[in-house]
Design a protein around this nucleic acid. Structure first.
Lengths: 182, 182
DNA sequence: CCGATGTGTTTACTAAGCTAAACATTCTGA
DNA sequence: TCAGAATGTTTAGCTTAGTAAACACATCGG
């Protein structure tokens, strides 16, 4: 049991690029505690585990979620793709529990004129995508291109990047990020 | 935190009609432990809580599930109703976390000829339903009726019962069980 | 009326969680 | 090459989780 907890915590922490000490600091616990939990030399109390997860942040339910489903979950029905709408942009994400996955696969839809906003984003990892329909203007660092159905992109996410639909019909595309960025 | 755990455990235990000592016996822990957890005089370790929940049985994820949604979750979109297909029968259930709810509300659909199987079911509680479309043959103890759109039923579940669609078009209905039976 | 059995609570004790601090190791960058 | 800061690990201690057993209180049957 505690071994399972340790493995899971370590996997989640390392995937997010956090050190034991960093996670310990933001969650207000001793770094030794995290070390011992991960090494399964400790059966954490629920409050302690919650305190640690609060620094990620991640709920207890999410942490334990793959106990019975997410780990070996393979197929997802169209209706199951959780939709996140944000202005003229909508996301439909494969699977709900990101934290223990390496890839975040999303079906996105940009309405005409919609985009990721004025300032470029910068974060760890890599991302790529392929356009299904419509037109998508992709800006990475100082390079800008307009992609059409069948076109694709791939770049390291530490380069500032933004997306925008410059056309007058919705733009659908499939994107993938690794590690998950939100 | 520990207070939250205590309240939740007590609610679940009492809903299932278990005494502290009975739950303690089947899960192999001291009854004092359960008493103290429920009274929030103790921060249980994860393994301890898991051990207790194993006696219910209930997963950690289910236990914590309503941390962030189910407790005050009120509205559910059509697409959110989790679908369970089983032969010619499909279920769409309102909400995923049953254990801390008193009612299990399901939209069911029986394909022509489909049913709950050859042997009647018997379990604790009460259940009822109303037919939306098609025809449904309901057998309770030694009584059998065919229901049509607008018809309904209500019986104590300790009477053997089974369902079957005797028509040649799908039968849709809404059912409710209390307490949840699966 | 009073044992017998059910409930949840409190208590003394030991086993273990959690922390602060020291330790070991690796990787920088000057 | 070597200081410095990062990483994860170990250790001594104080605190607390968990147990067995006693306690207090209801309900029930004879």
């Amino acid at each position: 049991m505690d071994q399972e907890i340790g493995h899971r915590l370590k996997a989640i922490r390392t995937r997010l690029g956090l050190s034991q000490r960093h996670l310990a600091r933001v969650s207000g616990v001793a770094n030794a505690t995290i070390s011992q939990i991960e090494a399964a030399r400790l059966n954490p109390t629920v409050s302690m585990l919650k305190k640690v997860l609060d620094g990620i942040p991640m709920s207890l339910s999410e942490f334990f979620a793959d106990d019975f489903e997410a780990v070996d979950r393979i197929f997802f029905r169209a209706e199951e793709l959780t939709e996140i709408a944000d202005g003229g942009v909508s996301f439909r994400q494969v699977g709900a529990n990101l934290h223990n996955k390496a890839i975040q696969l999303i079906k996105e839809c940009y309405q005409p004129g919609a985009g990721t906003g004025r300032h470029a984003m910068t974060h760890e990892g890599e991302e790529c995508g392929i356009v299904l329909s419509g037109r998508l203007e992709v800006t990475v660092a100082d390079k800008t291109e307009v992609l059409r159905a069948g076109d694709a992109y791939y770049f390291r996410s530490d380069q500032p990047h933004l997306f925008r639909n410059p056309g007058n019909e919705p733009c659908e595309l499939i994107t993938a990020c690794s590690p998950p960025s939100f």
